[in-house]
Design a protein around this nucleic acid. Sequence first.
DNA 1: ACCCAGGGTCATA
DNA 2: TATGACCATGGG
Length: 220
Amino acid sequence: MNEKLPVSFNREIILELYQRLMNAYGPQNWWPADSDFEVMVGAVLTQNTAWKNVERAIANLKHENKLRIEEIIKLPDTALAELIRPSGYFNVKTRRLKNLCHWVQSVGGIDKLYEMGTIEFRDSLLAVNGVGPETADDILLYAFNRPVFVIDTYTRRLLSSLGLVNGDETYESLQNKFEACLDSDYQVFNEYHALIVRHAKQKCNRTGECDHCLVERPFN
DNA sequence: ACCCAGGGTCATA
DNA sequence: TATGACCATGGG
């Protein structure tokens, strides 16, 4: 008896992982943006794209005073595409940004979003062409402080590396697991995901004692 | 020269 | 429902 049980996805493990990440990297202060709308734009622009490239695109929009809903809608597709060019997929993202802006207008403007229930908010976002689960949750969590846990490829990679998942789990399945393990606190959700991204960027020196290794060491 | 980056949609079987 | 193709820039 007293044999070691296989590590499973439970509250204790998820809390310890959070502590490891926090100890290694400290608070990340996400999402870097000057406005809620900027978070929404950034969430679309960063799809499968390095954040550094998104920063350039957003800087272009700011410099031309186009980081506003009406301005983006007004802008011809070719002009908008040119401004966001550095973030890649610029034709696709031009369409997606406009879809998102039209959607905001259709619900009566940004102010109406603060009054919307989180479930309805999420479903409504997902109905916008170009907004998938991660983009929707980025917006819900980082622009509107809603307690939804963001899942991304880094999250899957980390969990897989720790042997906590098989890799065949759906987005919502993983999200549900996290949300079931944690108190529904948007500040923790915010920090947790930011820390996972921070960890993904951490280089491993293979000594077993770097921050990367300390975070990913086996659980007892 | 190749691979990846804070995804998502669409056509096809 | 489940793959595969496609979108495109910039840095390692």
